[in-house]
Write a protein that binds this DNA or RNA. Structure first.
Lengths: 140, 140
DNA sequence: ATTTGTGCAAATCGTTTGCATCTGA
DNA sequence: TCAGATGCAAACGATTTGCACAAAT
């Protein structure tokens, strides 16, 4: 078989195992879609469409389960920019986003580029978990 | 009557008028709740509960309408921190937020305190509309 | 064999909408 | 008067859940 067909990327299977997730057919297929080509931003629905188009008929419920499991396992990060849609990002490094309100698209901004200074001390009893910067864009 | 009872703050009526909104019973009552005591963060539901408790039986639909009208009129700003809930903030100045994931609470960080540097040039055809910084907190 | 994942359809949650009724200028 | 607001209930879209079935170890 040509590598394209066998391209189930064995390292993905390992990656799932390390994350404590059984490498099931669906999870491997979704991991393959998500992690095979650079960083990506998806919604549950867009990933579902993509999987179905790719001949992997997963149900939407499984997509949601999988996205959350991957997020818990730190394979994905969740990006909250829009109250109506949840985005997942395959880039789990410290980084930020441009969000274009006109077409609801996300663009990564690598962490090194942006510096946030002057964050006040958090209230007693809490610690900073993460700092999200969203640069909202409009067409002009 | 004591000032507490007459506290329909006539300036609120003016404020609504200036925003092009008819000062109806409900709008004035909600504006009164929102703008009478320092800056506040509310959700549609929390404001609804509060209004009802205060003896102003508005419907939830009207709460949503009003929150959006106030937002369009720049009397409120919308804060997107949580995919499941929409928050509205009576502080419409440039500022940022602490968001405590444990109890879903918001705390303002005044704009002067935080500086964001190194934002890359936005893609051709778009301009920066707003930069949101969310400092996510966890109990430790 | 046992545990864990999956699919489906129904349930849920926050939010929006349609429409008849009311109200402020 | 009459455009604009409101309330209600139904519609909605995204997400979640319950449960019977299927697959992985």
């Amino acid at each position: 078989m040509s590598p394209e067909h066998t391209e189930t990327a064995p390292n993905l299977v390992e990656r799932l195992r390390h994350a404590g997730l059984r490498p099931t057919r669906q999870r491997v297929a979704l991991a393959n879609i998500l992690f095979s080509s650079g960083h990506r931003h998806v919604t549950a629905e867009s990933l579902h469409d993509e999987a179905v188009s790719a001949g992997v008929p997963v149900s939407l419920a499984t997509i949601y389960n999988t996205l959350h499991q991957f997020t818990d396992a730190k394979l994905l990060s969740q990006v909250v920019v829009d109250a109506t849609r949840t985005y997942f990002d395959t880039n789990t490094n410290d980084h930020h986003h441009f969000y274009c309100e006109d077409d609801s698209s996300l663009i990564d901004i690598e962490g090194e580029h942006i510096a946030v200074s002057g964050v006040p001390t958090p209230p007693k009893g809490s610690k900073v978990d993460r700092v999200d910067v969203i640069v909202r864009l409009r067409r002009h």
